[in-house]
């Protein structure tokens, strides 16, 4: 099954307006499978969320994290088991903090890397110089409240460029929720899991193997068919409410690689088979492929879903 995750949420423990109890209720109402608590520079909400979920015997799962809010950028940290100090953050060596966090088992990502920053708000934009792109785990390619063209589009392109170069980075997104915000038609993160499975482990597996989907609603699956020497792409619906679409909408697949981008229209059956020789025009089956799903046109405004990169074994 696909699980929908909301991975970037704040509560009254930092600057949100929802209490931990209200956050749980809000997530349950929107049929979220698992949500993260990622308050700014505090983990005080972790125990509260744990106790509330135990009391409620809720089926919703929680992920414990924090948004490290530093002078030079925000670092989203998931599966965080203990608070690590960030004040020694080095503008030119963020890897030092990344490594410390990863040694403790946390998943480390860059949040809204191109958010507005200097001179109006210090720290929102990621200004740190990353030298080692193997030192962190994911990039938040869509921070839903941020503007599309100046902030989210460059984040998506940054992730794509790094993945095409072979860096093992997963894509995530989030609401950066600070209140009862409308989540309809906004991007959410999805992963493959099992009913009742350990979400912490499932998230770790998904991030480490770059098996995360980012979507407003439907999932774009890709499956290698050795018999047909092709990859079969399929659109699958999810239970995420609020995805805006009509019967006349048509869907377009793009597959980006270092050699260029292939564009195909989905037939009504919502399944599309593309031969390998077409996907790898440079005859290099070691190339990474990034499939994306659009509605009606390939303008970024019409981007519906980003699938995990297809990475050769």
């Amino acid at each position: 099954m696909y699980k929908r995750l909301e991975l970037h949420n704040h509560t009254t423990e930092s600057d949100g307006t929802l209490t931990p109890a209200q956050l749980i209720q809000f997530m349950e109402e929107d049929l979220v499978d698992a949500f993260a608590i990622t308050d700014h520079n505090t983990i005080s909400g972790h125990r509260k969320i744990k106790e509330l979920l135990e009391q409620k015997k809720s089926s919703i799962a929680s992920i414990y994290g924090m948004e490290y809010t530093t002078y030079y950028g925000h670092i989203l940290c998931l599966n965080l088991k203990e608070y690590l100090s960030w004040e020694s953050i080095d503008l030119h060596r963020p890897e030092l903090l990344f490594h410390s966090l990863k040694e403790k088992g946390a998943l480390v990502g860059v949040a809204h890397p191109f958010s507005y920053g200097h001179p109006f708000a210090r720290g929102c934009r990621f200004d740190m110089t990353i030298t080692d792109f193997n030192s962190f785990d994911f990039i938040e390619i869509f921070n839903n409240p941020e503007p599309l063209h100046p902030v989210n589009e460059p984040a998506l392109l940054w992730w794509e460029d790094l993945v095409l170069k072979g860096f093992p980075l997963a894509a995530t997104c989030g609401m950066d929720l600070h209140g009862r915000w409308n989540m309809k038609n906004q991007y959410a993160t999805f992963l493959e899991g099992v009913n009742g499975g350990n979400i912490e482990k499932e998230l770790e597996d998904a991030i480490r193997h770059q098996r995360t989907w980012v979507s407003r609603g439907p999932i774009l699956e890709s499956r290698y068919s050795p018999d047909q020497q092709a990859i079969i792409f399929t659109i699958c619906d999810t239970k995420k409410p609020g995805f805006i679409h009509t019967e006349v909408d048509h869907y377009i697949l793009t597959v980006r690689s270092v050699a260029g981008t292939i564009t195909k229209e989905f037939p009504d059956c919502r399944s599309l088979e593309i031969p390998l020789k077409e996907l790898y025009p440079d005859s290099n089956p070691q190339s990474v492929l990034i499939p994306k799903l659009y509605q009606n046109s390939t303008a970024i405004e019409n981007l519906v879903a980003v699938a995990p990169a297809i990475i050769p074994n």
């Binding site: 700014h40 505090t42 005080s44 100090s85």
Partner: peptide
């Protein structure tokens, strides 16, 4: 050991710690 952090930009703020009652952001 970390016991609290306040991000909310209040020009006057309290960080209260006890067994049962704490300020937001505090453990």
């Amino acid at each position: 050991t970390f016991i609290g952090g306040i991000h909310k930009q209040l020009a006057t703020r309290h960080m209260v710690f006890s067994k049962d009652d704490t300020s937001d952001g505090c453990i």
